[in-house]
């Protein structure tokens, strides 16, 4: 389990990686041959910034845009609802109603 690959790159054009296991703060990842120390928990299946991303920049996964950055994002940062959004229709959580 500990030796499991940390993340996967789905397409060469992508500016994010997908975690292959739950990644913990303090863990050092190798992102494009550079060591990056994680500051956040990144669960299995979540996205990690592969490059520095500017606010408004398209997030690329599978080589295609999946939305835009809401803020500047640094390499190794968790990329999710707090710092990116859909270019089509807003996402919702359980807190959306009630």
């Amino acid at each position: 389990m500990i030796n499991r690959k940390a993340h996967v790159l789905l397409h060469q054009k992508d500016n994010i990686l997908v975690s292959c296991r739950d990644l913990t703060p303090g863990e050092t990842l190798c992102i494009d041959h550079q060591p990056v120390v994680l500051t956040q928990m990144i669960p299995l299946g979540h996205k990690i910034a592969r490059r520095p991303l500017a606010k408004g920049e398209k997030i690329l996964k599978y080589g295609a845009s999946i939305g835009s950055a809401l803020a500047d994002i640094v390499v190794g940062e968790h990329v999710h609802l707090h710092n990116m959004k859909s270019d089509y229709i807003p996402s919702h959580t359980r807190k959306a109603v009630g």
Binding site: V18, K47, I59, K61, A64, I66, Y88
Partner: peptide, 8 residues
């Protein structure tokens, strides 16, 4: 589960 947007 880590998905952020509809298009993703």
């Amino acid at each position: 589960g880590g998905l952020t947007t509809q298009e993703e």
